[in-house]
Design a binder for these strands. Structure first.
Length: 429
RNA sequence: GGAGGGAUGGCAGAGCGGACGAAUGCGACGGUCUUGAAAACCGUUGGGCCUCACGGUCCCGCGGGUUCGAAUCCCGCUCCCUCCGCCA
C-alpha cells in the first residue's frame, strides 16, 4: 500500500512512477477524490463531536452542582448534534472503506533503479555465471521428465491419479534428492536467518498484508468452510509474523527463513510448462525474508539474499543468470526484483528458480510493521525483502539434467552427498 | 464437540456511568547526588487522523445499542486460556 500522504503531496510523481509499470493514473485520481470528500466530512463530524463532548462536560458539572433543571436545553442540543454526527460518521466510514479498497489495489512504485520497459522482453540480464552453450554433451540434453521415467524417480501418473493435473510426485532417490536440497539451503542460511516453520493455512488479513489479496484471489486456494487460504509462498506468513508490531531499530534487520509447501492455482496457465515439474499447484520452497530499517538497509539485505542464493546454485554446479526485472514486469508489491534463472540443458530453458525482491514499505504498511528509530521519534514503517533461497522443483530439474552422465546415471553434487547418506551416483532403481 | 474464565499503555495490573488517555508497580529515558557506578530522590515516558500552528478528534479485543455523557451498562462477533470429550 502506498503512503496516502505521499499521494496527496506529490500525485504527479506517484502517477509517473506508476506509469512505469504500465498503470494509468485514474486510480490515483480516484483515491484523491474519495480522500478529499472523506476529509471534509470527517472534519464536520469531529466538530460536532467536540460540541457533544463540551456539552456533556457542562451537563456533568450542572448535575454535580444540583442545577439539573438548567441542563435540559443543553441535553436536547447535544442529542440533535449526536444524531447529525452519527449520520456523518456513517458516510465517513463508507468513504474510508472505499479509499482503502482503492489504495489496496494500487501497485508499488518501482525503484528508480529498476530498468524501464513494459514486458519480459525488456528485462536486463545483469550477468551470467558458469554457462557455456557448447559445453553440454548429448547425454545432458535429455529433459528431466524423460530422466524421471528412466530412473523411476518421478511418477506423474500417480500424481494426477491422486490430485489431478499439475501436481507432481517424486519417488525414491528423486524424493531424497529434493529433501537434500531443502536441507542444504536451510543449513546454509541458519547462520543469519532464524528458521521458522509457519502455518501454511492463513487468514484473509494475512494474504492482504503481502498484497496477494484482494487483487489476486483467483491465484490462491481458498478453503471456504473455514475461510482460510493456502499460502502461495512462505513470504505470506513470514511477513505477517511481525504484523502490528513495533521493533526497536537496534534489532533490525531481522531475518527469517522457512521451508514450506507453496500452493498456486495457476489460473490461466493451463497447458503451459505442463511437462515435468516446471509448474505445479504445489511445490516446495525455502524462503528468506528480512525486515529492514529503511531503503539502504533493505537493499543490503536484498544483496545478501541474492548472494546466498547464488552461492547455492554455483555449489550445485549449475549455470545461472541474474535478471533485473523491468518496471513493467515487476510484481504488484515489488519495487525492485532480481530473478535468478538456472539453466536446464535437457529442456534447454532458463528456469526462474528464485525471485529476490525489495518491497520498500509497501507490504509493511499493509501489515502495519514498524520500527522505533534509535534516535527517537515516531515509529516508521519497515521495509521488507525476500527471496527464495531456492524454488526446489526447478532447481531439482536443472540439477538432474546438468549432472546426467553418459551412462544415464546422475552424479550427485558434492554438497548434497552428506544429505544423501554419502550417495555419489543415482542409477536406475 | 461440551462447560467455564478472560481480553485495559513496553510489561504487570487497577478502574465497573461524568474531573479517565486512563491509578499503581516494573521497565525505559533525562536530571540531582557520586571520582565512577549502584541506591535514593525529582521529572519525562503510547498510537492513528485532521491542522503551518493553536488545537480538535479517535483508540481500554472488534462491531452495534442505551445515554446529554460509556473502559465502565446491554447485544452480537473474534481471539486467548482452563477443564471434559474426541483425535494426528
Amino acid at each position: 500500500m502506498l503512503d496516502l500522504r505521499r499521494i496527496r503531496s506529490e500525485p504527479d510523481a506517484v502517477a509517473a512512477a506508476l506509469a512505469r509499470r504500465g498503470d494509468d493514473r485514474s486510480s490515483i485520481d480516484e483515491v484523491l477524490r474519495v480522500d478529499a470528500e472523506r476529509r471534509a466530512k470527517a472534519g464536520q463530524r469531529d466538530d460536532l463531536r467536540a460540541r457533544v463532548n463540551a456539552i456533556s462536560k457542562e451537563v456533568g458539572a450542572m448535575f454535580r452542582d444540583g442545577r439539573k433543571d438548567e441542563a435540559a436545553a443543553l441535553q436536547a442540543e447535544s442529542k440533535a448534534a449526536g444524531e447529525r454526527e452519527k449520520a456523518l460518521d456513517t458516510e465517513v466510514a463508507a468513504l474510508d472503506e472505499q479509499r482503502r479498497d482503492r489504495l489496496l489495489r494500487i501497485g508499488n512504485l518501482p525503484s528508480a533503479d529498476a530498468p524501464d520497459g513494459g514486458s519480459e522482453a525488456d528485462n536486463v540480464v545483469l550477468r551470467t555465471e558458469g554457462f557455456d552453450a557448447d559445453g553440454y554433451g548429448p547425454h545432458q540434453r535429455v529433459p528431466h521428465w524423460d530422466i524421471g521415467a528412466e530412473l523411476g524417480f518421478l511418477d506423474p501418473e500417480a500424481a494426477s491419479r491422486i490430485s489431478g493435473a499439475m501436481f507432481s510426485m517424486y519417488r525414491g532417490h528423486g524424493a531424497r534428492l529434493l529433501r537434500a536440497m531443502v536441507q542444504l539451503s536451510l543449513d546454509r542460511n541458519g547462520d543469519a536467518y532464524e528458521e521458522i516453520r509457519p502455518p501454511t493455512l492463513v487468514r484473509t488479513d494475512t494474504m492482504i498484508s503481502t498484497g496477494h489479496l484482494p487483487k489476486f484471489a483467483d491465484e490462491a486456494y481458498h478453503m471456504e468452510r473455514d475461510d482460510l487460504w493456502a499460502i502461495p509462498t512462505a513470504e505470506v506468513p513470514l511477513t505477517s509474523l511481525g504484523r502490528d508490531q513495533v521493533f526497536d531499530e537496534a534489532v533490525l534487520p531481522l531475518r527469517f527463513m522457512a521451508y514450506t509447501s507453496c500452493y498456486r492455482r495457476e489460473a490461466g496457465s493451463a497447458g503451459r510448462d505442463t511437462r515435468g515439474v516446471l509448474r505445479s499447484h504445489e511445490f516446495d520452497k525455502v524462503e528468506l525474508l528480512a525486515y529492514a530499517a529503511g531503503a539502504e538497509q533493505a537493499i543490503a539485505c536484498q544483496e545478501d539474499v541474492l548472494a546466498r542464493s547464488e552461492s547455492i546454485l554455483s555449489d550445485l554446479g549449475l549455470a545461472y543468470r541474474i535478471v533485473d526485472l523491468c518496471a513493467g514486469d515487476l510484481g504488484n508489491s515489488a519495487a525492485r526484483t532480481w530473478d535468478i534463472e538456472a539453466y536446464a540443458p535437457g529442456c534447454d530453458m532458463w528456469l526462474e528458480v528464485s525471485s529476490v525482491s525489495w518491497f520498500s514499505d509497501y507490504q509493511a504498511r499493509r501489515a502495519n510493521i514498524r520500527y522505533r528509530p534509535s534516535g527517537g521519534g515516531s515509529p516508521e514503517v519497515i521495509h521488507t525483502v525476500n527471496g527464495s533461497a531456492m524454488g526446489w522443483p526447478r532447481t531439482w530439474a536443472a540439477v538432474v539434467e546438468t549432472h546426467r552422465q553418459p551412462d544415464g546415471t546422475i552424479a550427485v553434487p558434492k554438497v548434497l552427498q552428506p544429505y544423501m547418506g554419502g550417495l555419489e551416483v543415482i542409477g536406475p532403481r
